[in-house]
Every structure is written in structure tokens, then in C-alpha cells.
Design a protein around this nucleic acid. Sequence first.
DNA 1: GAGTAATTGCAAACCATTTGCAATTGTTGG
DNA 2: CCAACAATTGCAAATGGTTTGCAATTACTC
Lengths: 124, 124
Amino acid sequence: MDKITIKGAGFKLTKPRLAVLDLLAHDHLPKTARAIWQSLGSRFNLASVYRALHLLEKIGLIFQETTAKEKYYYLAKQPHHHIICRRCQKIECVPCHHDFSKVKNFTDVSHQLLLTGLCPKCNK
Amino acid sequence: MDKITIKGAGFKLTKPRLAVLDLLAHDHLPKTARAIWQSLGSRFNLASVYRALHLLEKIGLIFQETTAKEKYYYLAKQPHHHIICRRCQKIECVPCHHDFSKVKNFTDVSHQLLLTGLCPKCNK
DNA sequence: GAGTAATTGCAAACCATTTGCAATTGTTGG
DNA sequence: CCAACAATTGCAAATGGTTTGCAATTACTC
């Protein structure tokens, strides 16, 4: 399996797409559509950011993760997990060590794990 | 720790609240606010169903789980997990065998695991 | 560099969820 | 059992994130 690319997937390499991808590649932390749009200085249209995110997710370049309140997108070699501090919202990555390939006779199982807790600072 | 109840938590035992609770107790499967409202024959106002769900969740009687597309509420002795068929949306319960109490120095860690796959029928 | 299809920006549309408020209801004390 | 009061509901309007139609623009191919 070759490296996934926008062009390789048959889509145009446009400014909004590149900008979104660059931003997500920066620190690999999950971000909301709106946060991404703002980080890009509202340079593009919010709708275009949404469209870019959908496309990037569809071709497998980025992943998304949904909490009760927000929907996040992140770039990673492969899906891993995140732990979010309930108090200060700090997010850290958590490697995935799970194998859920066999669950209840289901096949092609994929999973999303969402962890919340109190980070060391907020725990005091 | 006593059994959690609506009255015990200091709230009124009203029709919408009881109806929602009854419905969720029926099969313990996760359901969306709208589905609950429809199952109740639209007998109550959708807003009241939302308010009932928020309250029940707040006092710890029900739990919620969010996918990319939907937000579900379910009643259970304790949070467990669900696997959803990507194709027919069938949902089954999956017991929880994980201990995430210690993750990256975070404390009070709670987790939500979301599994998707193809159920035996849809796999053919 | 021109031609063409894909993509963007914008504004309007959508849709789930929330909210303000007057009317109704559950609960408590008498 | 009833009155009194605060909590809760129903309704309709507001909100807010996300999506969509469409004309204008852009990326890619030859």
C-alpha cells in the first residue's frame, strides 16, 4: 500500500486542503473544524474547511473523534487515542494497544476510545 | 451508595421522565433523543424528552455515547460498550473488561469505547 | 496558455438542540 | 384532601454547527 496523497486519491491539491493538512500535521493533536478555521486566520471559508476535512478523512489521511460536545479531526500515522483533561481540556495522545478484531461475531471491527480524566496539574 | 432515583436526587417524578426511563429500561439498548420521542408516540414535547435525558444523565441514571453521526442514551447498571453494524446499524452490547485507571499520569480516568463493524448477516 | 472539470466562496438552508415564558403539574404542609 | 408554591412542561422562537446550490475561480492536462 502506497503512501496516501490527495492527488493520488484523484483530487486536486488546493490551498484550503493543503492548509488544513499542514495545520493538522503541525502537532498531531485533535482540533475542531472551527478551531482549524480560526488557526488559519479565517483565510478560507469555513465551509471549505469542512469540505477539506471530509475529503481528507474519506481518503484516510486524517481521522476524527467525537465527544459529547465536540468533533475533532487529527492527523496520525494510524488511529490512536487521546485523553482529555476534564478541567483544563489539555489533550495528550495515548498509543493503542488493543485488538478488537473479534467482537461478538462482527468483522472489520474498528474502534474509537475516548478517555477523560484529570491531568497532573489539575489534580492538585 | 443507595440506589439512584429521580426523587432521591431531588427532582419531581413527572410523566415525561418516567416514560423516558421506562423506555430505556425496556431493552437497555442505546437510542437517540428523537427515536425515544417517537417511540413514545410523540406524546410529549421533544424538548421535554431532551430535558428528561439531560436530567437522567446528570443524576447518573443513564449514560450517553456519541458517534460521528448520532448521540445515544442508554440505561445500564454501569457503563459498558456497544458495537454498531456499519451497514444495518444493528447494535449489541459488549461488556467492559478494561482498566484505564492509570493513563499518562491522569487520574479519575473514565472511558468510552465505540466499536463499529459488520454484523454476521451483513458480512455475507 | 487554453480548455475543462473540480473546487471555492458566499449566502441560504438545514436540523438537532436549547431557551424564554406562560400555563400546568407534582409535592408538601396543613 | 386541598391549597400554595416551586418545578416542569409545551410551544414557538432562537441558536449554532454543518451542509448545500450556484456562479465565479482554480488546478491540472494537453
